[in-house]
Design a protein around this nucleic acid. Structure first.
Length: 606
DNA sequence: GCCGTTTTCGGCCCGACTGTTTTCAGTCG
């Protein structure tokens, strides 16, 4: 977790995010108190496990299933039970006793760990959390820190830089496309050096996570030290944070931190594996290795028994996994969601790829539907030309429904009929081209789900639609029960409604999305033959991967759509595909991998 | 404090880099 205040205070209704902060704070406190190292590690693992949980921990508690979560055993389960019953945990209070609350705020500053945070609070007399960062910044500016024992001029500067970095982190992580662009420029630069043999992204970027913190790159190099020397000459570097013979950390003028690791080509496969993570994936891979008497590192694999410590090196990652008796695991799957077990049984999914996508069912055109939402920017013509260049077999114009507050029900019907006539006319005037390029154009609509679950268009208007998407665009704060009822009511209110658009409503870095009872939504989709969207817009990526995996395991079909509001957004499809891959999706799980003739009956089109 | 299809006890990942040190502790990934 970054940029958040770690939580010492507890209550009966703690969310997963708050619990993660609580457990990280507990681990930090245990480190100060020099508790058993492995007990500390256990709390850190519990925090990591909660981060990855798709269900609320409180719900698991209500169902008596706390210990089904990895890294939650009898001990922590008992503490959580006390927490959810009484809002307090006696044992946690003891762990925190005697520690200043301010130190847990300072921990959010990069470069400051538990020991340093504690020491600074003690030596500078910082106790309260609300102004801790401010007080620390002032002490650093007043050059007080360099006079403290164990600190110096450099560490004082580090603290100031860290506080600046904290403010940047608080503004949110980078969206995936931006991270890809910035890293590509640096990849191009690194490839210009004659020592460079190969450059690859590492970490969350290589796993194609929705948001990225720092950028990590790995270089296979004939001379790692020279590669690092070449890197720090990159003209977009604002500051070199650390530089050694194998790695360097730098900050770019854009404010983003980049970590680069260089290694000889003979060990490049091991380096890729090691720094791609995720952390939990690697921990479990190492446990598996250990069972076989092997030890993994970024240099390769060695026999634990081998006193000479000879390391079996791997130039390629595939052989690294094979050596452990596993299929190569695609980076998008390395999130400790059962991929290691699946790889051992040769049962990894055959992931969906961009090339499998045969059409886009959620596009906004510039036809003015007099909606309260954003209109599309591009014309019919521009969009079909782009669809043709992507080799699509079908697209659907799914503009927003007309605003209900500004139109009578009769006006809405007329508007939708007018829109149908407009598209019919456009389709027929481009008939030759569409036929030649085998592109089917559908007239759909993205209909608002009103707060009571009614639709923003009257029943009559469906006559002018081939099918429809429904989405929530308002009243995000309903209770889970009310929201679930609302969505199910809307989804099942007409047979032409086929897809639930951006199902969680999340906007990355901006809002969390609303609460839904997912098992109920999945059941509804199965029973009523409805589909969930994987919205490929980079700040949505919605469904998130965890729910994709659950939906697939229940047999619910999905549709990856770009929700394009401009012709250039059609290329965002790849981000939806990455997200689908992270949710273990195969082509058979995604309805728009079907050729038109097979999709047609699924959408109920004759 | 967690975990186990050889274990219910005895393991638990480890190397790079930095700063302030005279040989190492703290942080990070």
């Amino acid at each position: 977790m970054i940029g958040f205040q770690l939580e010492m205070k507890t209550n009966k209704n703690m969310t997963n995010q708050e619990l993660v902060q609580l457990f990280e704070a507990l681990a930090a406190a245990l480190k100060i108190k020099k508790a058993d190292l492995f007990r500390t590690l256990a709390y850190e693992r519990a925090a990591a496990s909660i981060i990855h949980s798709e269900v609320e921990i409180k719900e698991l508690w209500q169902q008596g299933k706390l210990t089904t979560l990895p890294a939650i055993g009898a001990g922590i389960a008992q503490h959580l039970d006390e927490l959810f019953r009484t809002g307090k945990v006696k044992h946690f209070k003891e762990i925190f006793s005697g520690l200043p609350e301010a130190m847990f705020v300072l921990l959010a500053i990069p470069g400051i760990g538990p020991k340093t945070a504690y020491k600074l609070c003690q030596l500078l007399g910082i106790r309260k959390s609300h102004n801790a960062v401010k007080k620390l910044a002032k002490a650093a500016q007043d050059q007080e820190i360099r006079r403290l024992e164990g600190f110096g001029k450099e560490s004082e500067q580090d603290i100031l830089r860290g506080i600046k970095e904290l403010n940047r982190l608080n503004t949110g992580r980078m969206l995936l496309p931006k991270a890809l662009i910035i890293s590509q420029e640096l990849v191009d630069y690194l490839q210009k050096d004659k020592n460079t043999l190969k450059v690859e992204s590492l970490g969350s970027l290589r796993r194609r996570c929705a948001t990225i913190g720092d950028l990590d790159l790995g270089v296979a190099s004939k001379n790692p030290a020279k590669t690092i020397a070449w890197l720090v000459k990159y003209k977009k570097i604002k500051q070199v944070l650390a530089q050694g013979s194998k790695k360097a950390s730098v900050i770019l003028f854009s404010g983003h931190q980049v970590d680069v690791r260089a290694q000889s080509p003979a060990s490049f496969g091991a380096l890729l594996q090691y720094f791609t993570g995720s952390k939990l994936h690697n921990i479990n891979l190492r446990l598996l290795a250990k069972e076989k008497g092997l030890s993994l590192s970024e240099y390769g694999i060695k026999m634990v028994q081998d006193l000479e410590g000879k390391v079996q090196r791997f130039s390629n990652e595939q052989r690294f996994y094979n050596f452990l008796g596993l299929e190569w695991i695609p980076p998008v799957l390395r999130e400790n969601q059962g991929e290691i077990q699946a790889a051992a049984k040769q049962q990894l999914p055959q992931l969906v790829n961009l090339g499998d996508i045969k059409g886009d069912l959620h596009l906004h055109s510039d036809f003015n539907t007099e909606t309260s939402h954003d209109l599309g920017q591009s014309s019919f013509k521009a969009i079909i030309e782009q669809a043709i260049s992507l080799n699509y077999q079908y697209i659907a114009f799914s503009d927003h429904s007309p605003s209900v507050s500004r139109h009578s029900s009769q006006e809405v019907v007329e508007m939708i009929k007018k829109r149908k006539d407009y598209f019919e006319q456009k389709i027929s005037s481009n008939e030759k081209l569409l036929k030649k390029r085998k592109l089917k154009v559908l007239v759909s609509l993205e209909i608002d789900i009103l707060s009571d679950g009614k639709l923003a268009i009257p029943e009559k208007a469906f006559a002018w639609l081939d099918f429809a998407i429904v989405s929530v665009h308002s009243s995000f704060r309903l209770s889970r029960t009310a929201m679930t009822k609302r969505v199910i009511k809307a989804l099942t209110s007409h047979p032409k409604i086929k897809i639930l658009g951006h199902p969680t409503g999340r906007i990355l870095n901006q809002r969390q999305g609303y609460q839904l009872d997912w098992p109920e939504i999945f059941d509804c989709c199965l029973k009523e033959k409805k589909f969930l969207e994987i919205n490929a817009f980079p700040d949505r990526l919605d469904l998130p991967e965890g729910l994709i995996k659950q939906a697939i395991s229940r047999g619910v079909g999905l549709s990856i759509n770009t929700d394009s509001h401009d012709v250039k957004n059609l290329s965002n499809m790849i981000y939806g595909v990455y997200t689908a891959q992270r949710g273990w999706a195969e082509p058979k799980d995604i309805i728009n991998t079907l050729p038109w003739e097979q999709l047609k009956p699924i959408l109920g089109i004759k």
